[in-house]
């Protein structure tokens, strides 16, 4: 199980990479494994989000799951490459499988996120 030390995590299995006031967001290796083959990532539009707002859905063969905003902010970029190659979410969840970039409203919200160690405990990985 790949759980990079330098990322922040949510209890709903998103990861967050913070660079300045921009957060890049995707779903974790654990999440993609649980979902199975991802066939469509539906992120309708760039918009303002409150923490825990649904910003999209992820369709796997067997199931569908909502994507939740880890912090509040504004979507500035959507990973358009996922439209043609959604399998990147499975094969490279922390790289080409990223979903959105957002401008963070309130950096203090980042403190509510889990670090790698806490996320490992959440999913029972050792």
């Amino acid at each position: 199980m790949n759980i990079p030390e330098n990322l922040k995590y949510t209890e709903s299995h998103e990861w967050v990479r913070v660079e300045g006031n921009i957060a890049t967001i995707g779903i974790t290796d654990f999440a993609q494994g649980e979902l199975g083959d991802v066939v469509f990532v539906d992120i309708p539009e760039k918009k303002d989000l409150a923490k825990d707002d649904v910003f999209g859905t992820i369709e796997a063969v067997k199931t569908v799951s909502d994507l939740l905003a880890p912090v509040s902010g504004t979507i500035t970029e959507i990973n358009e490459a996922l439209a043609e190659g959604p399998e990147a979410v499975n094969t490279d969840p922390y790289g080409n499988g990223w979903m959105i970039k957002m401008e963070i409203n309130d950096p203090s919200e980042l403190d509510t996120l889990l670090d790698a160690e806490a996320y490992k405990n959440l999913i029972g990985a050792s």
């Binding site: 494994g33 199975g36 083959d37 063969v61 067997k62 499975n90």
Partner: peptide, 20 residues
Amino acid sequence: AKMVEFAGFQMPLQYSGIIQ
């Protein structure tokens, strides 16, 4: 295999992935 419970059995849900 990724195993799941089905009808009281531990069964394989998938190996390489459902689509493949």
